[in-house]
Design a protein around this nucleic acid. Structure first.
Lengths: 189, 189
DNA sequence: GTCTATATTTTGATAGAC
DNA sequence: GTCTATCAAAATATAGAC
């Protein structure tokens, strides 16, 4: 493990503050204070506030894109792919809880990279939708509205970052399994 | 129907802008421009930017609290209560899509009313949890982790505002039914 | 009810010393 | 790599004319 650079430290601390108050409400002075330095000193390591947001969001968005590509190319049925998607979200979210907040809530404050982010997001949703439709066609899952199914599952997974840190007593593979059971099988007895 | 006052119009337009960029990123000049007046003119109708946020969020939070109270006092089983909760969220969210964005994303920017909001939110979650636990005890729903169940269902319902406006071809009672089926019965066949 | 003018603070960012 | 000093722009809000 390489030691964290000053730049990486700034980005990590920024993501934590962004999670609490959102990108727009966090000032460079807030960030500097949290780092124990003056605001002007930040600019020796990063080029702008906007650039911090770019770095946080794009890295995560590409991680999801890569994960989805791997799942697609795995030669498995729909239910298994959904399980893999759940595991992907649990893994990425638990590894970068603060960044996930920016990904979900602050992407609209991207400037140069906003279009690129939105393309990745739309592609991801299309891939997700395709898996559900294949599952319906193959008679693996119920023939209900795939948009509502996707919305329900994806919203839950995208919000994992809010909830994961609160319950440290649950280990991650157990969380994946429980989520899989509830999202796929429902809660009715 | 009483005609909308200028104050109500400002709050409505503000909520729309808050949904797009978040409370902190919307300036009084943005809001004034959208209203077709100057920023200083806004202050003849509202006392502060903060006050707009208060009005939007607290009204909605109290609406949810009232709804939950009604559901609790209805003498029905757990599954029925969950169905009523889903209908409550679909109804309130569809009637105030913009306000729901502030409720979900900008409550941390409340000042005087922040503690009050958080109490309402915690109470709501406790009531939800109690319904699930009663359902488990009564053998109505699966004996899985109630925290994960609540997280999954409540996150989906809280995010309805993101998704409702995109699919106007679905009517609301049909949406409630589909959501109920997917959240309660799952998607597995 | 809206305007112009303005006060006061805060913002992101730069220059240059150490 | 951090500091002090500072800039220019943008923020919320008020006062007073119409």
């Amino acid at each position: 493990m390489k030691p964290e650079t000053r730049q990486q430290e700034i980005i990590r601390v920024a993501a934590k503050l962004f999670k609490e108050k959102g990108y727009s409400a966090v000032t460079m002075r807030d960030l500097a204070k949290e780092m124990g330095i003056k605001a002007s000193s930040l600019y020796n390591h990063i080029s702008s506030k906007q650039d911090i947001l770019n770095t946080i969001i794009i890295a995560l968005a590409e991680e999801f894109t890569d994960g989805m590509r791997r799942i697609q190319s795995s030669n498995t049925n729909c239910i298994t792919k959904l399980k893999q998607i759940i595991e992907l979200h649990v893994k990425i979210s638990s590894q970068n809880i603060y960044g996930m907040a920016s990904l979900n809530n602050d992407w609209m404050h991207l400037q140069d990279q906003r279009d690129y982010y939105q393309k990745l997001r739309i592609d991801y949703e299309n891939d997700f939708r395709a898996i559900l439709k294949q599952g319906i066609d193959a008679n693996e899952i119920v023939n209900s509205n795939p948009e509502v199914m996707m919305f329900s599952i994806l919203t839950t997974l995208r919000s994992l970052y809010v909830w994961i840190p609160k319950k440290e007593d649950i280990n991650l593979s157990e969380l994946s399994n429980t989520l899989n059971q509830i999202l796929i099988e429902g809660i009715n007895k």
